[in-house]
Amino acid sequence: MSEDHHNPTPPSPIEQRVAALEELLTERGYVPEGFIEDVNRAYENDIGPMNGAKVVARAWTDPEYKARLLTDGTAAIAELGFGGPEGHYMKVVENTADVHNVVVCTLCSCYPWPVLGLPPKWYKDAPYRSRMVREPRALLAEMGCPLDDDVEIRVWDSSADARYLVLPARPGGTEGLSEDELVGLVTRDSMIGVARL
């Protein structure tokens, strides 16, 4: 970003449009003071894949928690303090040696905000949304997640009110790690289902 205040880059058309709507709605009293910061602050600081990673690590280390998580995802995730918009009805699907789950929203970009934060650009763009239901095995391989032919793929198109979290399989050789150490192994992509750990 330019620091040259004498020749600032003129605002782009999209910046001008956003500013126009923001200013007009604010002048008319529809945007409370501090609203823009308040709406976004949590997603820029506290809410993101680190939340989902805690859920996954707990499930890997506590079989009873894992059973609750797979039965009632919303309640089990709430046990760790996570919930809110786009997380009111959570379903958790488990990856195993034989089954691989992957999540998409073909109609918009539905995504479990409380456990993964706001979605990455590729999840919202047309290539992923169009192709994951049509050619999941080819697309997963293309995205760096090749699967053997005998691994069943289950694609979940989250087109209604349920939001999906993939429970990745625990990597081998991690038996000696603590729950906190396991948290650090869990990636966002593994919880969407476009990567295995």
Binding site: I14, E15, V18, A19, L21, E22, L25, Y30, V31, P32, F35, I36, D38, V39, N40, Y43, E44, G48, G117, L118, P120, K121, W122, D125, P127, Y128, R131, L139, E142, M143
Partner: peptide
């Protein structure tokens, strides 16, 4: 599918403003 490495939550300030203004509207 084009994956952006180390993608920020918002790419520019207008995105965060647009998100909030949408809720307000």
């Amino acid at each position: 599918v084009v994956v952006e490495q180390d993608e920020p939550v918002f790419h520019a300030d207008w995105e965060r403003v647009a998100r909030a203004v949408t809720f307000a509207a």
